[in-house]
Design a binder for these strands. Structure first.
Lengths: 187, 187
DNA sequence: TAATATATTGAATATACATTCAATGAAATG
DNA sequence: CATTTCATTGAATGTATATTCAATATATTA
């Protein structure tokens, strides 16, 4: 393994450790020392890999923004089926690859709470809300989903998922929900 | 107004300001100075009213724990109707008395994230989960709610509410959901 | 009014923590 | 092997911020 690859590995290890801690304890309550200790690595060395704590956060948010992105529903699939399967994918992926799911929670937190401005903007730009609104409007026309403000419905759907995932990220007792339950909110 | 009452008023003003800021920005990212500025009051005076920032948090968590507490459903009311009305009450109360609803969010955050141990324990002890589990089990026997692990269902319900409320607390664009939507998760 | 208690302030202090740095070890390169 | 480059450390530094404190203003009491 070349030195460059080694460095890349190490960076990833730091990123994954920081992601977990940021989600479990929150960004401001996670000290550089905590991350270093968990990796493990000396505190000083952290700054060989990342310019600053904020830089570390930005890198994570960039990863999160690069993710699946477009969640548009194909015309020939009913929106309820699509949303159920999308949720199912996220949840089952989360079992094997907890980071995907930590990422989901982090992105929501960055959008909402007192985080560096730059990070918030980037996180906001990568939001599944807009495509979901049109899916819901289609579902309403087809009579699958009930009436109501489509924007509010879409938000409820994703923020409900957000709340459940936040709990799953910190509470090992919390079992994954059946995706159907959550999509039922829309019917 | 006696001096003691005056002091009590002032304490409440500080508590309400801190509650709002803790929910909007998070506990660790809210500086004593921020709270003092928002009240408004000098930084030093804060310590005339509260021993420490942690003491302030504890006081809030104590208020949150003292709240409605028992949310048991009367025998003659169907559980779905009861949960819908409970949610409706919380949501409409939130319109006039935002603090009730900030409190809801704070309690959830304290339970989950890196907050002082003492606060977390107290917040955990005041959790609507247990009564909701029995309500759901009753609903399942009566065939109103669908099958599934009752504990997981109860958690999903409340954490979904938590996620939605967190958003409402920080995003003025977010409109209140119809309580029926959320209870539909259980049916 | 005088004396006492409480409220208030802003500056001083202490502490926690992000960041820097000089020194050392280990690997790559020639 | 000699040299250079990179990885690593732990202690030093600087900054942000919780907390304390001495001084002053305001209210209460006798």
């Amino acid at each position: 393994m070349t030195r460059k690859e080694q460095k890349e590995e190490r960076r990833k290890a730091i990123l994954m450790t920081a992601l977990k801690l940021f989600v479990e304890r929150g960004y401001h309550d996670t000290k550089i020392t905590d991350i270093a200790e968990a990796v493990p690595m000396s505190t000083g060395l952290m700054f060989h890999y990342f310019e600053s704590k904020e830089d570390l956060l930005m890198e994570l948010v960039r990863m999160g923004s690069a993710g699946p992105g477009s969640v548009a529903c194909p015309e020939d699939v009913p929106p309820d089926v699509y949303l159920t399967s999308l949720l199912g994918q996220i949840l089952s992926y989360a079992k094997e690859q907890p980071w995907v799911f930590y990422m989901f929670v982090l992105m929501g937190q960055v959008r909402r709470t007192g985080m560096p401005e730059e990070a918030r903007k980037l996180a906001e730009s990568a939001d599944a809300l807009v495509p979901t609104v049109s899916m819901i409007e289609r579902g309403q026309k087809e009579g699958i989903f009930h009436k109501g403000d489509s924007d509010t419905l879409a938000r409820c759907f994703w923020y409900a998922v957000q709340g459940i995932m936040e709990q799953m990220a910190t509470d090992p007792e919390m079992k994954a929900p059946d995706p159907e339950w959550i999509v039922a909110m829309l019917k």
